[in-house]
Nucleic acid binder design. Sequence first.
RNA 1: GCCCUCGUAGCUCAGUGGAUAGAGCGCUGGAUUCCUAAUCCAGGUGCCGCAAGUUCGAUCCUUGCCGGGGGCACCA
Length: 555
Amino acid sequence: MKQKIKDLIIRAAKSAFDKGSLPSNKFSDVELEEPKAEAHGDYSTNIAMVMASTQKMAPRKIAEAILTHLDDPDNILENTRIAGPGFINFFLKGASWLPVLSKVHEEESKFGACDLGRGKKIQVEFVSANPTGPLHVGHGRGAAVGDSLARILSFCGYDVTKEYYVNDSGRQIKTLGLSVFLRYKECWKEDIEFPEECYQGEYIRDIAKQVKEEKGKDLLGKDQEEAILYCARFASSKILGGIKKDLDSFGVKFDNWYSEQTLYDSGKVDSVIDNFKEKRIIYRKDGALWFKTSDFGDEKDRVVKRSNGLTTYFASDIAYHQDKFDRGFDEVVDIWGADHHGYIPRIAASIEASGFDKDRFKVTLIQLVNLLRDGVPVAMSTRSGTFDTLQEVIGEVDKDAARFIFLTRHHESPLDFDLELAKKKTNDNPVYYVQYVHARISSILRKAEKEKGIKDVTRDEKALLMLKEPEDIRLMKNMSRFPEVVVNCARFMEPHRLTFYLMGLASSFHTYYNKHKVLTDDIVLTQGRLYLVLAVQKVIKNGLFLLGVSAPEKM
RNA sequence: GCCCUCGUAGCUCAGUGGAUAGAGCGCUGGAUUCCUAAUCCAGGUGCCGCAAGUUCGAUCCUUGCCGGGGGCACCA
């Protein structure tokens, strides 16, 4: 529809030039927008104002010239108007919105899909929490955003791989092992000192008990290093299992779990360092190895190998990101907590140094989540009984509600997550507002079959002509925006746009529902409205799917 | 100190180089003999943090300032 009108405008401008009404044939790109105020039409363009300087004419004069040469072969325009400083407003005939209904019905679950990605391989890496403790709410937000983004990208023609990077190597894993080992010794009534840097959570004791059941007293007699290593491996695999389970119940599935340790085992980390040494972008200073990230736009150089001989996490991250491109991904998206933002320039530097275009690498930052209960912050203490793990939250709050709420903010704004609000099944809680549309329409369809004997909702030209109320048209107009919203979500990596769109569509529907009855004695009208309402249901369903939220038949 | 980010209605937040800047909540009143009231309708509010610049036009872009948050390790 939009393109159609753009074409009309271009043709009009050309013909205005041919007939001598416009002095120049330099036309700028037509920008067509949907005005906020309905009084400003269905579409509006600022082209006359933009062209004012090249045409050397007053904007309103240009607008007049274009309008007098405007031809409307398909007869879709009700009216056109010049307004304000030189806007051209287009008012469409109600019937020109009807094609969107057939489109929705034909394309069904594909309505809104597109080929923006052209099959490009894209990797979305998200959550990637260290396997040293359970996921907390913040990870939940990352999971919701990442998973939704992956769904949207895939809907937009990308070949998407969802990956979780497991930091199963390095110091914190050793700390985890030590923590568990100490708690294990405690189980055997040994006196221990539990250092502050060890993991304080209650879950460490649980894991220690499991070690005890599995190994009995064996570890007490063993070499301490070996025992700690055993505990570390045992604990991280247990915790990772828990993380997988939590994500599963949150509706998030990864295609790939990538282990950091394998980067060391395969020698990838060493070979990257050697390679950079050959390129003379790694040098030695004070006994450590430094990567000259400042040559690639970072503010200062970074250490990849410490003077004690141990590599830093940065070293494995360089190898990891190089590996992503080596695996053939055209684009790589990382979703990180906002506290990592200072890390972006050095990773970008490493990608460039590895010989890849750093524009193929994008980072989306997720801001903090503040967990509240009735407006009061929930204490995030390290003691037991805290309420900040993802598991506890989705134990109390519906998974759909949690996912939806995580997507009601721009991901770079901090988010307040109120547990009591999330549980409320009212208007305060936008999830149900949207899901309710789906359930209500299901209910209408059930009733249509039961009471009117209507089994199939079919397209009927006569019935379509009955859809001429302003509310009918508003719904169709709203649905026709869906594909564009999805594309913009993908383009800007902002799934929350979809959330807001769905709330708007839901609002239009609820208004409609209260004003007009779908099932009437007039069978033709009923057919038309069923056709309309079923289309709304399909769009809502597609939208909810892209958010990872279910579309219930009943509520 | 340097870097990033945010500052929009009483609250929580969307939004855009355009016309009269929006939504939900909260508050008040109303709607159901009829498809689910988890719904709808009506009622009002803004120096869009401040100042300058770019522009036909800035809340949006640029710069500076003020205020909140975050980041600046041979930590992860």
